[in-house]
């Protein structure tokens, strides 16, 4: 029973981490209608910024982490300026193709700048787990989970209720209508990328705290994909729930099914969920349904 609780809680917390990374997908989608394939690379970039500021430059955390966020935001804005500002009004497909290019580009850039070596990531959350009776909870995941929930609810409110958020929602619905109402599509896309890069850096900090970092950390982006699809690309609060579902299922499957079959089912399972979702309900649990009037 205690084991079960342990798996459950840890699964849920890992799920929330996925949710945070998935939020990066959703935020960029919600403000620009672009599905960003290079989300994992943004996490790696954010991670390396943190590593560079704290380990390489030796800055104290209170200075280094904010600086890393600033660098990530600048990087997000640069992406918009260089690649997307020319594509306003172009088909969404061509924008998504650009993100594939970005994936390859950022990966190359990281290799050129930082090399393929594995680097120790600074310990941002103390490694000592929180112990409640027999239940062990890693601090980084617990704090990360709380940050994720707060961020998710905050962003959800932002997009549905504030004027800036609604403006971005309009851009996600229809670039031309947004323009006809005097909404700056470019500014909205720039904001989306800055926000996406910020969330990725936040994700990198929670995911990598006390672990090691190299360019392969971008796999977390892939792991978060089922969460974004399960939630539906437009729903930020939905990502929290989808993250919990995927995390818990993965945790329990890893604990109970893996030993019986010799492993690896746990890491495949989220993708099985993803395939099932694509078959049954392609818009996800909370996504915008395609409205057809008959």
């Amino acid at each position: 029973m205690i084991d079960f609780l342990n798996y459950l809680i840890n699964g849920a917390l890992v799920g929330l981490l996925y949710a945070l990374i998935a939020m990066g997908f959703v935020v960029i989608y919600r403000a620009s209608k672009v599905f960003n394939i290079a989300q994992g690379e943004l996490v790696v970039f954010g991670g390396f910024m943190v590593w560079w500021m704290i380990v390489q430059a030796g800055l104290p955390m209170a200075v280094g982490i904010p600086l890393a966020f600033v660098a990530a935001i600048a990087f997000g804005l640069a992406i918009e300026k260089i690649f997307f500002s020319r594509l306003v009004g172009e088909s969404v497909f061509s924008m998504v193709m650009v993100t594939i290019g970005l994936l390859i580009l950022i990966r190359g850039l990281v290799l050129v700048l930082f090399g393929p070596a594995v680097r120790p990531f600074p310990i941002i959350f103390p490694l000592k787990p929180i112990i409640l009776g027999d239940i062990l909870i890693p601090r980084s995941l617990l704090f990360g989970g709380l940050i994720t929930i707060a961020t998710g609810l905050g962003l959800s409110w932002f997009f549905n209720a504030t004027r800036t958020g609604l403006r971005m929602t309009a851009v996600a619905e229809d670039h031309q209508v947004a323009l006809s109402l005097g909404i700056s599509v470019k500014r909205s896309i720039a904001f989306a990328w800055a926000l996406g890069a910020t969330l990725s850096t936040l994700g990198a900090i929670i995911f990598l705290s006390g672990k090691s970092l190299n360019f392969l950390a971008s796999d977390i982006g892939l792991a978060a994909l089922p969460v974004a699809l399960l939630a539906g690309f437009e729903s930020i609060a939905g990502v929290l729930l989808a993250g919990l579902i995927v995390g818990i299922v993965q945790g329990l499957v890893t604990a109970y099914v893996d030993p019986a079959v010799g492993g690896a089912v746990g890491s495949v399972f989220p993708f099985l969920i993803m395939l099932a979702i694509l078959f049954i309900r392609p818009t996800g649990m909370f996504g915008w349904k395609t409205i057809e009037r008959v």
């Binding site: 609604l166 309009a170 619905e173 229809d174 031309q176 006809s180 915008w288 409205i291």
Partner: peptide
């Protein structure tokens, strides 16, 4: 714009 371009999901 032509064609009643409401923001459909809102």
């Amino acid at each position: 714009l032509e064609g009643r371009r409401v923001l459909r999901h809102l």
